[in-house]
């Protein structure tokens, strides 16, 4: 994978030759990618490719075995998660982590307290953010009572309340039905329009194609392709990563035979 082909000033996140080994298992293998400021960048790949591990490294939850992570022009490889959040790098979790014993408003306020010392300010921000993701009428509901879709929205609201510059979204659409996906796409697009840079792991290709400017494909820990969503899905290496070796050729033969 060539190093960044974009000027550093325009790069929000730059992951440089990051490797993560757990004992004998290499979860992330010399992966490099960059996320331009103001973009929505996708990170796709088959299950177990190392996408979430890479997110954990970028967000400071794991220390990589090798490589560097730069965020907004500064090396942040060794910063802990809470300091990264303070610098403006927010993340959601694939397996949502609501503060189950608290209400929706209290959940979101925890995020808002990062930039607002006083409760009244934090509550105002929390209410605004919750309303924005469509939880405005559920403010006083216990988080534990939310539906799957509600919890996904809450996960998003909590991190938005920290006012991030870069947002790492880990499968925010997984588990939602098509109409729920349709509801939340404009919300994500709206965030980008507000100037938040987004890097998203997503399996819902409809969303990837409609949202992402650029996509990186991770397979067995390595970045095997990058480009626009359409380029990437047509790439034989990507097809093979998902469907197995030789699949692209077989598909091509089958299509030729049909024609």
């Amino acid at each position: 994978m060539p190093a960044a082909d974009i000027a550093p000033a325009a790069t929000m996140l730059y992951v440089e030759n990051v490797t993560m080994r757990f004992g004998g298992l290499t979860a992330v293998d010399d992966a490099s990618l960059n996320v331009p400021k103001g973009s929505i960048t996708g990170l796709i790949g088959p299950n177990g490719a190392g996408k979430t591990t890479l997110f954990s490294i970028v967000s400071g939850f794991l220390k990589p075995t090798g490589g560097r992570v730069s965020f907004d022009g500064a090396d942040v490889t060794h910063l802990p998660a809470h300091e990264l959040a303070e610098k403006g790098l927010g993340r959601t979790f694939q397996i949502v982590k609501p503060f189950a014993g608290l209400t929706v408003a209290e959940n979101v306020a925890v995020g808002a307290f990062l930039r607002h010392r006083h409760r009244a300010d934090a509550e105002t921000v929390a209410e605004r953010v919750a309303t924005r993701v469509g939880l405005g009428d559920r403010l006083d509901a216990p988080a534990a009572r939310l539906t799957v879709a509600g919890r996904k929205r809450l996960e998003l609201a909590k991190v938005l309340a920290t006012e991030p510059k870069l947002l790492l979204l880990d499968e925010v659409l997984a588990g939602l039905n098509p109409s729920e996906v349709r509801d939340i796409l404009p919300v994500i697009r709206g965030l980008r329009d507000d100037g938040i840079t987004i890097l998203m792991i997503e399996h819902v290709m409809q969303a990837v194609v409609s949202l992402c400017d650029r996509v990186f494909v991770l397979a067995q820990g390595a970045v095997i392709a990058s480009g626009t969503p359409r380029e990437v899905v047509a790439d034989p290496r990507v097809v093979e990563a998902y469907l197995g070796k030789g699949a692209a050729a077989r598909l091509a033969r089958a299509e030729a035979a049909d024609a």
Partner: peptide, 26 residues
């Protein structure tokens, strides 16, 4: 209970990782 410290304390009780992701110095 009404302060930032209180909110962060309760948050880490409920889920430590989620609290860290929201900038709480656990």
């Amino acid at each position: 209970r009404g302060s930032r410290f209180g909110a962060q304390l309760v948050a880490l009780r409920e889920n430590e990782e989620a609290a860290r992701a929201l900038g709480v110095d656990v």
